[in-house]
Amino acid sequence: MQNNMIKISNLEKIYRTEEVETIALNKMNMEVKEGEFVAVMGPSGCGKSTLLNILGLLDDPNGGSFLFNGEEIAHYNERQRANLRKRTIGFVFQSFNLIDELTVFENVELPLIYTGVKASERKERVEAALDKMQIMHRRNHYPQQLSGGQQQRVAVARAVVNQPKLILADEPTGNLDSSNGNEVMALLTDLNDAGTTIVMVTHSEHDAKYAHRIIRMLDGQTVTESILREQL
C-alpha cells in the first residue's frame, strides 16, 4: 500500500471581484498516492485548473487542509511554496509555456539554475533529459522554430530535468494533433512507470484512459471517481 503523496480535505478557493464571488473549489476532498497517475476531468469552469494550481503550489487555498507527503502546507508563504515547488514539482501545460528568448537547452536548464546546480552537472542532466525526449538535435533552436509536438517534448524535458516526484499536466495534448498527442501521453506513462506521480487535467477521454484513476469534478467538488487499472 503506497503512502498518500497528496491529501486535501475541505479545500476551498473563492475568487472575489468587486461584484462577483466565484467559488472555484467547494470543500473539495481528494487523495493521490505516491506513483499514481490520476486524470481530473470535468466541464469548463468546474475548478480543475484551480485545483491543479493549488496542487502545484502556485496558488493558496482560502480554507481547508492540504497535506503534501504528510505535511500541512496550506499555510505556507510564497517563499516556502517556491522552495517546495522547485524541488518536487514539474509542470506541463497545454500551451507549452516555453520562454521564447531562450534556446531549447536553456529552457530545460532553467529549473536547474534556480535550484543551484553546478554548470557541469547541469549540462549533463539537460542533455540526458533532451536525449530521453528525443529532441537533442534541436538543443540550440528557439521554441518558435519547433513544431507543437517538439515544443511539448521540450516542456516535458523541462518538467522532468529536476527529477520531480510529482508532475502536474494541464491539458498536455490540447494543442497537439493526435499522433503528437499520443507520443506525449506515452512519455508521461513512461515517467509514471519509472515512479513519478502524475496528476493530469484533461478534456480528452482518450488521454484519461492512460491514467490509473479518473476524478470527475463539477462545481468545485468531486462527483465521481473511477479506477481504470491498479497501480503496480
Partner: peptide, 16 residues
Amino acid sequence: AKEVSVRKMVGAGRMQ
C-alpha cells in the same frame, strides 16, 4: 508576464 510566470513555475524565487 508569461516569461515571469514560467520562470516562477520552474522554481524562480521572487528575489531571483
